[in-house]
Design a protein around this nucleic acid. Structure first.
Length: 240
DNA sequence: AAGGTAGTCAACCGCCGATCG
DNA sequence: ACGATCGGCGGTTGACTACCT
């Protein structure tokens, strides 16, 4: 059974927002606050999907958003955070005041890919004139970017573990963390935690880990991985 | 001047975890 | 306990513009 659509798409506006729509949305949120994106369009009189309203507000209309002119400091921070966190744009954006994840994502895909390209020898195949569609070009660029990013990370002073991005479960600091990781691998620890931007990665005493006692583990964090986490934390701390 | 190519970015899509009833 | 729903996220698309040949 597939997931139900977030809204009825029939009769709704799509594409670029008009100034009028922007005005309606801003006015509504100013008087009612954020949230309830599902009912917002109906109540505000917008022929838009709630998700679309949320996106427009979050990425464009919010009054505290800083747009354009990414400074060299921000540029460097994005690169370092990306090495640490991977494509977790919302987390990266959380460390760059008033920047949106969408802007950072776009910035990475445009500016920083170019930057990385300059740092590696050109691929002779990249000059092919037979590439007819933008999508094809972009796909190749992305594959290349992934390769070069990996190469770059392999040669950086601090070698960064760059796993496939996974969602981390957040929990309050006074609760016992129950699980981290992906693919249903469960790790439960009694103490020790590393905080990443409001989310929590947990590392317990390594000896405790090795005992494997009372741990529902399909996957066991190795000493190497734990050390890597510590290094990551140090690197992250320096960035903050 | 015209057509092609590359860069930019707003917006959409679909998935996932959290929450609620 | 379980299904439905919502909010949030990352990936991708496509329109628009600037630049190149």
């Amino acid at each position: 059974m597939g997931r139900a659509p977030c809204c009825e798409k029939v009769g709704l506006h799509r594409g670029p927002w008009t100034p009028k729509e922007d005005g309606i949305l801003i006015q509504y949120i100013q008087s009612h606050g954020e949230g309830n994106w599902k009912i917002l369009p109906k109540e505000a009189g917008l022929l838009r999907c709630g998700k679309s309203c949320r996106l427009r507000w979050m990425n464009y209309l919010r009054p505290d958003i800083k747009r354009g002119n990414i400074t060299p400091e921000e540029d460097e921070l994005i690169i370092r955070l990306h090495c640490l966190l991977g494509n977790r744009w919302s987390l990266i954006a959380g460390r760059l005041p008033n920047r949106t994840d969408n802007e950072i994502k776009n910035y990475w895909n445009c500016h920083l890919s170019k930057k990385i390209k300059c740092e590696v020898p050109p691929n002779p195949e990249s000059k092919s004139k037979t590439q007819k569609k933008n999508s094809q070009k972009k796909t190749k660029q992305k594959i290349k970017l992934q390769k070069t990013t990996t190469e770059m990370m392999m040669t950086t002073e601090t070698k960064i573990h760059c796993p496939k991005p996974v969602r981390l479960t957040s929990f309050k600091s006074d609760e016992t963390p129950q699980s981290i990781g992906a693919n249903s691998n469960k790790v439960s620890y009694s103490d020790g935690e590393i905080l990443f931007g409001g989310e929590c990665l947990c590392v317990s005493d390594l000896s405790e880990l090795d005992s494997g006692e009372d741990h529902d583990l399909d996957f066991r964090m190795t000493v190497w991985e734990a050390n890597m986490l510590e290094k990551l934390y140090e690197e992250y701390s320096r960035l903050l």
